[in-house]
Design a protein around this nucleic acid. Structure first.
Lengths: 317, 317
DNA sequence: TTGTAGGCGTTATCAA
DNA sequence: TTGATAACGCCTACAA
């Protein structure tokens, strides 16, 4: 009676259930459940029998059934505009790291910044009974129907990169204005007088905020604003940027942190935290490079992210 | 009896179930189920009653319960080494597109090319009863325990980017040898004599295959092999590459296709296709740039992917 | 410490 | 065309 042969027979059969284990070890399902979940003390004898039965049948708890019984899936839904857009992988990674740490998994959806896709993704995630949703936006704004959903939703919801004034939901965003402002100030202090900006499309609120910070800082420092030095690039430009000579001074968005903080916040809510909604503003990191004349590294966050950079401020001579 | 008030009350309550809908509309759960799934003809009267009840209660089928009953989750598990590695986002996007098209979702895991994490990810996915698994590898090889699991697994399994000789499982990989070989031949035909290679770490089989193709092609074309012209970069180098002047000729891996074909294959298996395992070798696309003296675009695949490039062959003068 | 039985929200079988 | 009712695999009072 070689086990391998027996296993071979069972191969294409259904996976063993808690009942199979109970039968095999001659105990009740309760006992098996207690063993599997390490709850309630189980006598040594039974424990051993159950454990060997589990081994023998290669039993693996069915998390779907557990989810149904406990009304918890330990799954987080994450909607991003496009995972292939270089901005998001690190955000997703941050979220996954935090999720993983707390025993959660990520169900990933791409919305292409298309409001219909976004809505149906939310619908789907709700039907799949995820414990919470991370909604990441790049360009498009919220549609009334979506705002309504978000408001009435009774599963936790954390917005990433976007929010709107009257929203009473959690959000994790970057302090774009401040990041640009400080970058300009820094360059000005370094004696630069012709400071330019490479940013994303100005119709996007983040890019607009950056421009505003850039603009206000110039004014504060009594420097001229020269439209010629403002480039409204698309986001793909960013991965160029580290190799220009002289290398450009940039403002790095804490992408990994963006994802991980959002996930942490979400998980806190899932755990039952009913305190007032928060909007967490993350500070970008100024990465000073040769373009500003000397190498100084000002770290304002403990960002994980150091591979790809979000372009922002550039100094000419 | 304003509906909004009633909804307000129900807000933090549990979501409506099929029983609630049945009660509300005075029919059996069967009828509701039939309406929801558009199966079995339901009389016009009942249909209307059920539909309005669904509307009123904001009923949303519980896909967890459905999964348990149907033994299908419509979820695919996808394991990647690191979504933040620029190679993978497009692969994941390809998989997601194909999955989405067939009504599947993606549960994403990062393995960091760490065999323990990889194994526990597989375990978890199996426990979550995903319908199939997409395993993407970059560097590490398969561990015996893993090979065993893959072999005995009774959920479909498609390997991406890696396989091994005796494996009798589906895989989608790139024809690295051929890609490099043809690129060199092309450059040689264009009259180039000093041809160099920028590749990934040579301990990785793909990079090795590329080097081999590069090497063999040089030999076939009677060109000298100069170790000085071979750079063993890491993969991050690739996103630089489009802006060098003269721009380098590269071999693009069909990343999106890699993901989508793998997912399509997997879904086919999930649907019950029991035919012999296949190893699909995707042909890379040679992107000819100034570095080879003229601009010709040779397309060998219908790859979606045109944003970031996988560096490969470079011609000097 | 261990067992029994009901519930979680669907689908599916078999009658009516 | 509809309606009961038993799975699906797990958790969890409540009992023993």
């Amino acid at each position: 009676m070689s086990a391998s042969k027996k296993d071979g027979r069972l191969k294409s059969a259904k996976a063993a259930s808690i009942y199979d284990v109970a039968r095999e070890s001659g105990v009740s399902v309760f006992t098996v459940s207690a063993v599997v979940n390490k709850k309630s003390h189980v006598g040594k004898k039974l424990l051993e029998r159950v454990e060997s039965a589990i081994q023998k049948l290669n039993y693996r708890p069915n998390l779907i059934a557990r989810s149904l019984a406990k009304q918890r899936t330990h799954t987080i839904g994450m909607i991003v505009p496009d995972i292939a857009n270089p901005f998001f992988p690190m955000v997703v990674r941050g979220a996954e790291d935090a999720a993983q740490k707390h025993g959660y998994n990520l169900l990933l959806c791409n919305s292409d910044d298309n409001l219909d896709k976004e809505e149906s993704a939310v619908e789907l995630l709700l039907s799949k009974r995820v414990d919470g949703i991370l909604l990441t936006k790049a360009a498009e704004d919220f549609r009334p129907a979506m705002r309504q959903m978000i408001k009435e939703m009774n599963v936790p919801f954390v917005l990433v990169m976007r929010t709107y004034p009257k929203l009473t939901k959690d959000a994790v965003i970057t302090d774009d204005y401040q990041g640009a402002y400080e970058a300009v100030c820094h360059l000005a202090r370094a004696g630069r007088r012709r400071i330019g900006l490479i940013s994303g499309p100005l119709k996007i609120s983040n890019a607009k905020a950056r421009w505003q910070g850039f603009h206000d800082a110039l004014k504060a420092k009594d420097l001229p604003y020269d439209p010629e030095l403002v480039v409204e690039g698309d986001y793909r430009i960013e991965s160029w940027l580290g190799i220009f000579r002289p290398r450009l001074t940039t403002v790095e968005l804490p992408k990994h942190q963006l994802g991980s903080e959002a996930a942490e916040l979400l998980i806190q809510r899932i755990a039952g935290d009913r305190s007032k909604a928060v909007v967490r503003k993350l500070q970008p990191e100024l990465r000073v490079r040769e373009s500003c004349g000397f190498a100084l590294h000002v770290s304002r966050t403990q960002s994980h992210d150091s591979s790809v950079s979000e372009p922002l401020v550039r100094a000419g001579r």
